[in-house]
Amino acid sequence: MSDLFTIVMTASGLVFFAAGTLGLIRFPDTHSRLHALTKADNLGLGLIALGLAVQVPGLADLFKLVLIWALAILAAGATAQLVARIAAPADLGEEPQSPPDETGDGETRRT
């Protein structure tokens, strides 16, 4: 029973990853691509983690699984925001307001 649950959940997670990858390749501009990618990260990884959660031997492992998922979501969300901010002027057909710096985030200003 739990095996079936795992198979169904991880399989649907993989579908989201595949769809996200397809979107990354096919979508026309940065914001649409980010949209596709973040869906893959949140839902895809979430479903896979959920599917694996019923297989773990102990609570400690369950905690690690949840932590991995939470950290991946946090990192994906934050980087998506930063990439989007960098890309915003270009996508709107404007000149970039400041040159991208070596941290590559849209908030940093070199002084």
Binding site: L67, L74, E107, T108, R110
Partner: peptide
């Protein structure tokens, strides 16, 4: 290195607060 200035309470500043303890 260069000096990094971020918007207080912005995404990066928040991210930089959540990650270090872990």
């Amino acid at each position: 290195g260069p000096r990094h200035v971020t918007r207080p309470g912005g995404v990066l500043a928040q991210f930089g607060r959540v990650l270090p303890p872990i």
